[in-house]
Design a protein around this nucleic acid. Structure first.
Lengths: 204, 204, 204, 204
DNA sequence: AATGAATGAGGCTTCATTCAT
DNA sequence: AATGAATGAAGCCTCATTCAT
């Protein structure tokens, strides 16, 4: 399937992914037909199968590229910040910001997670994402910034908080990102006891 | 669609829900056909539509009844515990225990959350679940047990942690429930700083 | 299938026919299910098959009994009127009156006429109805009251006029029966040239 | 559903309508399945839904196009005949001739008239057909060719005669068209009193 | 007489995918 | 690269009918 695409070709491909993302987000993956996708671009069905070998492949590609995009954003936000706890905080904020700008992807990822077909891609994505967080956590533990406990579990917990707050406050209601980010950071760093802990100042 | 059902009828209905739950969990809602469901019971297709007006209705009923079951478990676990923070902890542990025993439901709920069709039911379920948690949180704040911050947000964060740890350690790997529960409780009460905080002892 | 029915049995049977007639008229024969029919009576499906061996049989019975009812009305209206032309007129008026009171049957008969399954019953009914009209016509020709032409054709034409005017003015609009009857009689007796011909006075 | 069709496409569409017409006429609308229709063309089931959005739509289209065809025939037959009574006669003859050549459509229209679903299309068709007849009748009344009475009612009566005689003599028996047409014209112009009225000679 | 339950063929429609042009 | 057309398996659901009680 790997094709060498011309400039125009790459654009078409992206258009297809974008259209699909919107439709998948609105109606779900299964209820969206290939016909819907190409119709939304006003082209024939052949176009779809020129760029993707199947509907599944399209979603897989979408998942991969969106994850790449999110990760780039996180890395840009973190830069070369030396403090690992601060890096975690910056990562959380960047993630929320990214989801705020790409609401469509949230529902799609959520769905893909329920379908064995896409498990491999998602598994890989999550491995990477967790790896990033775990790296920071380990360093923080080594530096004595946070108590010594299982970093993998902590990473999962952090991602859980982000997921839930994203869903609720970025998608359902329309809270400003910074407020949600403050809450997420606060909870992750201090739990119920946290509040806006002084020791961990918000991004200034 | 409300029908007067005989004893036998009610049993059949439950069998259908159970079969469906298993198949939905294994393959997903859309990929599971009504034919699959009745075949798994060895009955004719008409049986399905005698008890449910559509596949959608079956899932809605499933979501409602599983939520009821989970909530009963939580209430039983909490009993008349006077300490609100302790009630939260007991709720978290009961929830994890329940999901451990009803792994099937997790994936199904996860999927339903991605499909607008089931939004109404899930919304109601979540409203109730959050309401329970929020009640404890408010009391805890009043009693000065935890700092004064938005209880709704805290409740969401707690649920997010539970979700994620459930998915990871109860479904994917096979951690003992108590260990996962300890981690969840610890993170929720103390965040990254938490560890197994002394002030909040695990269920003994 | 012929069963000896108790008094109560005969009533149930009639109730079923009446319910069915109403539903058939509203939605059509095929789109009305046996389930609909028994539900409209609030009884189980067994009842239906106790009185009728099939849905087809019900419609056949309905067609037979309604035809009988119409014919009785015509005979009552005609009484022992000696003038054959007048008898035709009285028959036309009685027919319109009957359809006015049994609008439901019109659509049903109309439908049955399009389905080979019911052709035999309808054929018989029509044979009888035509026979009645033809008898009057022949007598009228013999008596020189109307010119000598094919009475069968004339009978068909008369029935066509009645059909059409019934459909239009008794079912779609809500003209008073007498007015429609006047028009039908006038057209049948005098054609376009007719008007309200003096020689043939309306029922007084 | 409007699609841009190629030449080949338009042909397929017509083939489908023709096949359907034949089957509907033979077995009736409901008893004919989409599967029957495509099988009769030897194509896949998808083809049907490429050209029509539903079985209902197919019948509606069929009703519209057949009505158009009949009307064209009538207009061609009437030409620029100046005498309105003569125009009516020519119209009657053309109609009978058309039905003689398109027997299939008669049963279908008859059925459609019994199903509320198709009422809108048929209503429109009939409105048009009646309008044509009424126009001639009004002119005839103005010119004093026929007595002053309600033209709408007269038009209905005429159509009723045509219907009935068509059904009987063109479909059930196999009378020559001209003889049936003579009878229809005669009855419409002169009623029972008519006979083959001298004043209105048959088409010569 | 009557009921709730069950049957299973068959109906309409969708849709991922392929193909000729 | 792209299109309109075609495929046909499969999906959801209906329904006349039968059966055990």
């Amino acid at each position: 399937m790997r094709r060498k695409l011309t400039q125009r070709g790459r654009e078409r491909r992206d258009q297809l992914i974008r259209c699909a993302a919107q439709l998948f987000a609105e109606r779900g993956y299964h209820p969206t037909s290939v016909a819907d996708i190409v119709e939304c671009l006003g082209v024939g069905k052949g176009v779809f199968y020129w760029y993707f070998s199947s509907k599944e492949e399209l979603l897989s590609e979408l998942l991969k590229s969106s994850h790449l995009s999110l990760r780039r954003r996180q890395q840009a936000a973190i830069g070369d910040e030396p403090d690992p706890v601060r890096r975690i905080e910056l990562g959380i904020r960047a993630t929320l910001q990214w989801f705020h700008e790409h609401r469509d992807y949230f529902a799609i990822i959520q769905f893909a997670a329920t379908d064995e077909t896409f498990a491999p891609v998602l598994r890989r994505n999550r491995e990477v994402a967790l790896g990033d967080t775990i790296r920071h956590l380990k360093e923080a533990i080594v530096e004595g910034r946070i108590p010594d406990s299982d970093p993998e579990t902590l990473a999962h917990a952090i991602h859980g908080v982000i997921d839930q707050l994203t869903r609720r406050y970025l998608l359902e209601t329309n809270e400003p990102v910074s407020r949600v980010a403050d809450a997420a950071v606060s909870f992750c760093l201090g739990g119920l006891a946290g509040g806006l802990d002084e020791g961990v100042s918000p991004v200034s």
